[in-house]
């Protein structure tokens, strides 16, 4: 059951990315090109996603646990840390250069096989190394 709901969530997520324009790197860069010819569309993607979640969370928060698991798995860290800042700067550079963030990178894997597979491999390599680095930085 938990696998089916995760699969459905993944499909809806990717269809939303495609419909919203997030799978088109030029459109993403057009949104980030604030000082050029600016395409504000992706602000609507983020706005729509956040508003639905703000409303939905009010309903989910009334439950003590999710339907297919014993507990909600929420991030424990609450403080602003140096890795949070440095990581976000690096992520922003990569996103600006390629026009692809991790979600669209996954969804694009088989859309354009020539570049999709090598790109997702590069993202995964960065993720694995980054997670190992982050583990070293954290006090045991």
């Amino acid at each position: 059951m938990a696998l089916i709901t995760a699969l459905i969530s993944g499909i809806i997520f990717g269809v939303g990315l495609a419909l919203g324009g997030m799978l088109d790197p030029s459109k993403v860069v057009g949104f980030l090109d604030l000082f050029g010819v600016w395409d504000p569309s992706l602000a609507f993607v983020m706005g729509g996603g956040v508003i639905i979640n703000v409303i939905g969370h009010q309903i989910i928060a009334r439950r003590s646990r999710p339907i297919c698991d014993n507990q909600f798995h929420l991030p424990m860290t609450k403080t602003i840390t140096l890795p949070l800042i440095i990581g976000s700067v690096l992520f922003g550079i990569g996103w600006g250069v390629t026009g692809l963030c991790p979600g669209p990178a996954v969804a694009s894997t088989f859309v354009n096989i020539d570049t999709g597979i090598s790109f997702i491999v590069a993202v995964i390599a960065g993720l694995v190394i980054g997670k190992i680095v982050l583990k070293q930085l954290r006090p045991a």
Partner: peptide, 30 residues
């Protein structure tokens, strides 16, 4: 119809930074 903005080594280095940065920064756009 995705219109790519990067290719070759730029795309790969960018992808690596997307992964590295979002791992160290504990999250991305989603």
């Amino acid at each position: 119809l995705p219109r790519p903005v990067a290719a070759g080594s730029t795309l790969l280095i960018g992808g690596f930074l997307v992964g590295l940065g979002s791992a160290i920064g504990s999250g991305c756009t989603s």
